[in-house]
Design a protein around this nucleic acid. Structure first.
Lengths: 145, 145
DNA sequence: GTAATTGCAAATTCTTTGCACATAT
DNA sequence: ATATGTGCAAAGAATTTGCAATTAC
């Protein structure tokens, strides 16, 4: 079903790491989600599926998922981190709704070029960049009658 | 000397807020700094000037500084916040050296346009954006012989 | 004088760690 | 068997808050 979950199991086996039910359940939630979940979101989702795991285990498994390259960590300055499956889209930016917290992705080639140029101008060796656009999504604005 | 400090004193008086030595000392450090300080940086600098104030007071005064519009809060995903005097430059972006933590500012008109367009495309009402370019500065690379 | 601030310590939030017990291979 | 993971509770780091003592106006 979820091929990314398969990849994770393979990763674990290749690295001689035990394939535990908790790891699979956590990976299933994170890799299967379309959204950008916080550690707490993951724990809550697990519970609602009847497959609870301790928060500590959630954090530890997410760490493995990140090392495996299947998940990316994000910090939108909300006071906690979010985790996103490293799918298709090579590098992309985010729109964050400041009301509902919904995260939308987009990609724009120009940003790669611009940031690379700017880094050069400042004699920085560019490692990466992060752009977040803050605003309110259409749904939330509708609610604000 | 520091005219921003004067503005802060005026702000306090206009709002019937006591002008305390702690507030002035903290404002002097934050407003007078060219860099992007953390709350801890501010407390440490105060101590080194012999004008120490409790960390809680530092946080509370920074809050007032932000409300006064003289200081802007930044979160570069380092696990703590930084504070920057709201000087001249209207809106600007940051380069962050991942070795020494140095922050460099730059401004690029194109980013305003691009982010506004993208927000529109996603039917977001844009409130603002934040761009950080991560990399290593020239000085730090020199050290990495 | 009185209302507001200060400082300290305790509380909070997110995340990490230590350790006894359980489990995958 | 044995190394590794898990859960819980305690520890950490940044920030906030409650409250008695202090200070600005």
């Amino acid at each position: 079903m979820n091929s990314a979950l398969e990849s994770f199991a393979s990763y674990l086996r290749e690295h001689n790491l035990p394939v535990t039910p908790q790891r699979l359940a956590i990976a299933d939630v994170v890799l299967g989600s379309a959204s950008h979940l916080s550690a707490d979101d993951v724990a809550r989702e697990l519970k609602s599926r009847g497959a609870a795991a301790g928060l500590a285990t959630v954090y530890r498994t997410i760490e493995v998922l990140i090392r495996s390259g299947l998940v990316v960590e994000r910090d939108f300055g909300e006071g906690f981190k979010r985790y996103e499956p490293a799918r298709d889209m090579p590098h992309h930016e985010h729109l964050l709704c400041s009301i509902c917290g919904r995260v939308t992705e987009f990609r724009d080639e120009r940003l790669e070029r611009i940031t690379t140029l700017i880094a050069e101008q400042h004699r920085f060796s560019r490692q990466g960049h992060r752009l977040v656009i803050y605003g309110t999504c259409a749904e939330c604005r509708r609610g604000l009658t």
